[in-house]
Structures are given as structure tokens and as C-alpha cells.
Design a protein around this nucleic acid. Sequence first.
RNA 1: UCCUCAAUAGCUCAGCUGGUUAGAGCGAGUGACUGUUAAUCACUAGGUCCCUGGUUCGAGUCCAGGUUGGGGAGCCA
Length: 504
Amino acid sequence: MKVKDLASKVGEVIELKGWVANKRESKTVAFVILRDGSGQCQCIIDVNNVGEKVFNDAKTLTLESSLSILGKVVKDERQVGGYEIHATDLKIIQVAEEYPIAKKEHGVDFLMDQRHLWLRSQRQWAIMRIRNTIIFGIHQFFQKEGFIQMDAPIFTGNACEGTTNLFETDYYGQPAYLSQSGQLYGEAMAMAMGKIYTFGPTFRAEKSKTRRHLSEFWMIEPEMAFYDIFQNMDLIESFLNEVIQKVIDECEVELGIVGRDLTMLEKSIAPFQRLTYDEAVEIITGKQKVNGVNTIDTLNGDLKSKEEEKAAILAEIEEREAKINQQGIKKGERNFNMNKVAQLKNSLKDVEEDLRNIPEWIASATNFTYGEDFGGSDETVLTRMFDTPIMVYDWPHEVKAFYLKRNPEDERFARGVDVLAPEGYGEIVGGGERETDVEKVKAKIIEHELPMKEFEWYLDLRRYGTVPHSGFGLGLERLVAYVCKLPHVRETIPFPRMYGRLFP
RNA sequence: UCCUCAAUAGCUCAGCUGGUUAGAGCGAGUGACUGUUAAUCACUAGGUCCCUGGUUCGAGUCCAGGUUGGGGAGCCA
């Protein structure tokens, strides 16, 4: 019996197995919040129903102790989930040692050290379930569309985008790298199957300490024969729309737990804004208005509202500190206010960081040099102007990967496309149409100073029945972070691997 | 690799311009109270103030170097 199925068992006596998520006790009655992986439910252990012995056992329960409870399901609107259990019996499996994660705010480093336990907390539980729904939704979408799932190798000899951010391993005496993309292999498979997608881990040794980088992350890379860049963009659009819609439909409870504001997420299910690089640059630099406003004015407006927000937080801190210092204040109320102040101070730090950043974004946007790739702040500035994801295509070929096709109308541009998620989440998809002409690919390999010999097999794909083809790569963790509106990708994967962290 | 901020009790943090035996809350333990939802009351036990060196009569506090972590840049998904 699982907590999620209680609705169908009202009035019956059932057994639940799980862990103590929380406990409150008094002389004659104890309240145990039991979590079983499917949800949480309050169990009432009344000495009059279970007897002295069982009640005394219940009193020994600590946080995260494991147990099974027998009891009657009772509907109670006050409870999370709407039901509670009136226990008739209880079997303790283990009384847990003192649990390190308390019911309070913790620091990131501490929580990361306790990741194996942190996963049990409600918020992490919700994120992992949303991740699962997204993964399943991705497979469903591609399978429905007739794609064949393929597994690209993880050891690879090809360093397709330079070796600086590759993990090198010893492969029977020769260097092998951990894959940073399965795309080249995906192209080969697409020539065999028509439409394929990879779904696997990728590794990048970037010594990045930012909210959107991991050293090990999961990437989904579809590759389609006979698709041009515009068909590619159509696919990206319907793909993301369907996956996000599935999460909205199926993860209402989980999205509620992570505190996701659905209005923005719902707005993103729509045709995406499509901009060429040139158009995007015009908007970033403020020369082109969007709905009557330009980026500079928008950012200055943001600056103003952040300042108001800061003032409001400061006022609330002052108010609550005054309350704390009042004579004769109840201890509980005092603690409550102290906790609030601690939270407020944290949000103050965030607001102050925004206040420092926004002027820098304005400066970086106004001074943007045509021809360069977008930086993190440029992406933020651009996405700030729209509610839906943005697809930027036709990039200056110098800043893009060697395998991208040039725009036949204008050779200055490569047919790459980046999808930028709203709300500051930046690039979640990178893709494009691939070069089909063997000589042009060769020229690019030379330009990028890549070892030609190792790419001979890739060139074969152009020698034997080359066709127009396109594909893209989606970063799973970035998508999860965006869907959940998390401040950092480290919470989107069970055991994040990033610069400076290998354990647990 | 660069810029920037931080490191004090198991946890979250105070500790002002260097000055006796370093504080609070949470958590833990004990007892009382209670159909409770991080909000009752009291008591108790918890510290190599990250490391090394320096300045000083005196360093948690100042300086230098290091270590670890946060945020960001670059690069990317």
C-alpha cells in the first residue's frame, strides 16, 4: 500500500511502510509524518488505540527511522494529501541515529556533503520526480515520431571541439576521451536509420563554477536525415512544447512543492520566437525595440524594481528585529521571526547581486561587438524581452562548430541554432544543419586545427550518399532547472559531478 | 586560469574600531505541557574561532601565503 493510493481506501485498515519525515508527540498522542517514496501522510498514534507498549515504542522514533504502520484511513482536509492514518499497530524496523539534516535552512556545501540523505527531502523528491517525467516524456516524444534510440560510445578518440575540456583516460595505452557529445556518431546512425536520438551521459572538464555547468551531464541528441534547419527548428519547438506540457499535466503536486510559478511556464508553450543572429544583436544592443520597448529601458526598469524590493526587504528585517527585541515576546514567535530574518538576509544577498549585475548587463549589451558569440548576460538580456524560448539561428560561422552548414544565400553565416530558455536560463539547446560537402568539412577541420585522420570515418558520411541533415543537443539538467525554476543545476541530478566535487 | 565574497558549536549565524572565562537560535538530552503542522516552558551537554607564519603587551578580530567553499567571467548544454 502506498500513500498516493490512500484515496481509494478510506475507512479501511491498511499497512504503510516508510520512514519518519517528522514527528510531534505529547502524553497520549503522537503524530508521525510518514514518507514512503510516493508521498507523505500523517499518522496518529493514540495511546488509547494502540496501547501502552506500542505507544512507548512510537515515542522512541527519531527522524528517518524506518517502520511499518497499520491503521485506518481517514479523510481530513487539513492534512497535506487530504488523508491521515489512525494507527492500530506499529512495527519499528530501525530507530535511526541522529539525522544530520534538520528542519531548518542549511548551507549548500553541507547539503551537498549529505546529498545521499538530502535526496529524501521533499523538495529533492519533487525535483527527481519531475526529472523522471521529463526523461520519460522525451522518450515518448521521439518514439512516437519514429526515432530510433541509439547509444553513442562514451570512450572516444575524436576530440570534436578541442581537447582542453576533455577528460583524458588511459585506453590500453593510448589516450581516450570521455565523450563530450555523441553527435558525430548520431550522424552516422541517422544515415542508417533516418531519424535517431541519443540519450546518454557527456563529460566536460570545464573548470566552471557557475549555476549552469556540470562536469557530467545527460544530453539528448536527435539527428534527422533530410531535415534542413527550419524543419529542425519546427521539431525543437514541438518537442519542448510537448515535454513541458506533460510535466504541467502530470506533476502538479511536484511543481507546487518546488514553488514553480506556472503562468510563465504555460506561456512558454507556444511557437518560439525565431531570430537570426543579426536580429538578436539589434535587440540586445537596444537598437531594435520589442513590443515598443528596448533592452536598455527594460533593464533600467528592472533595476528600479529591484531597488524597491531591496527597500522592502530591509524594512521587513527592521520590523522583525524590533519584534525580536520586544520585552516579553513568546519564545516561539521570537524564533519564528529570527528564522524569517535569516531568510530575508539571504534574499537580500540575491537582490544585491542583481543590483550589481544589471548595470553590468546594460554595459555589456550596449557594447556588444558584432560577430561574437553571446555571453551569459547577453542571453539573459535577450530572453528578458520575450515570454517564450527564443531560437537564434544563422550565426557568424567563425564562432560555431566545424560541422555546421553555411547558409547558401550568405556564406558569412553558419546554420546553427541556439535555443535560449526564458527567465534567465540561457542556452538549453544547441543544434543546426550539418555540412554535407566533403571538401567544405575538410576545410573547416583544417581551420579548427583538428586531426584530419581521426575524422576520416566522419568524412565517409559525406562520400557515401550524403544528404541534408540536422540535429540538436538538449542538456537535460538545464531543462529540468528551467522547468522547476531552480537557481542551480546541481539540484537537478541525483549525484552531481562538478568542479571540486566527486563525493558522495 | 582570472575577478569577487566567505570560513566561529552537529546546523544557521552574531561577535562593532584588536582587550578578562567566545554568544544566540535550531538540533540533541532531561522534565513539564499540548490534535500538533519549523510558533509551549525550563534546565543540561556541545567550540583546535580552516591551516601556516607575521605584527602586537595582547589576535576570532589586523597583515601575508595557503586550503576549502559560494557567486561570476571565459567556454558551453
